[in-house]
Amino acid sequence: MIQVEHLTKSYRVSRRSGGLIKAVAALGKRDTERVVALDDLSFTVSDGEIVGYIGPNGAGKSTTIKILSGILTPDSGECLVDGRVPWRERKRHVARIGVVFGQRSQLWWDVPVIDSFDLLKDIYRVDASRYKKNLDELTGLLDLETLLRTPARQLSLGQRMRCEVAAALLHDPDLLFLDEPTIGLDAVSKLALRKFILERNRARGTTVLLTTHDMQDIEALATRVLLIGRGKLLLDGSFEDVRASLPGTGSLDEMAAALYRRYGV
């Protein structure tokens, strides 16, 4: 499904120092610095896997997602998703993937959710019968019945996230990117969302790439864990392997912290 080879990406960021006098001085010139986001990153993901993609903040997770979804072009390296090079065939590629950003919304804030869905139907050119079938199915599984007529701004975070997930699946993508989907959700909503993702994966074989800071998400969902730090792949294995390699750590968060410490990230 996904093949990533020797992916490298760096950014230029500007440095500014604090204080009024330094700010005046900076009017003349500004220092920039190169920051390496991805450093020779390689991995593969097979059809139907649920991969947990973890690492501390700034490790390069979202850069990877952006490259895999065709938003960014890497500096060098190869990447094939289902035979497509994402950034070269953007339109063809994004028609086959679904993306959910936990902290951003693709629903229209002020109009009923169903209208947003309806618009997505046209954007993704989903034909009417398939749309109806998918919508009914998703409505049932995610319990959206009462939410569809409500404007997105009036939904609770948990309700909205269920709608976001449905919105990303209306066009039957083979590959789903979830970027911190459970952030800020209450326990009930988290459990419901995890259950849904597992079911979708089992029933349709949808491949899922999940980035999260919530180790319980990983434990509940991921068949495989990729740990990334400073743009490099540090670990690739099953959740059980990772857990077993770190005996004596209590909670899942302690385990993750121990893991980051071990790799010095």
Binding site: K66, G70, R90, V94, V99, R104, I123, Y124
Partner: peptide, 13 residues
Amino acid sequence: SAGFDRVMLRPRG
């Protein structure tokens, strides 16, 4: 607001 990412994620011009 990074809204252009969303635009890039859709299969339209």
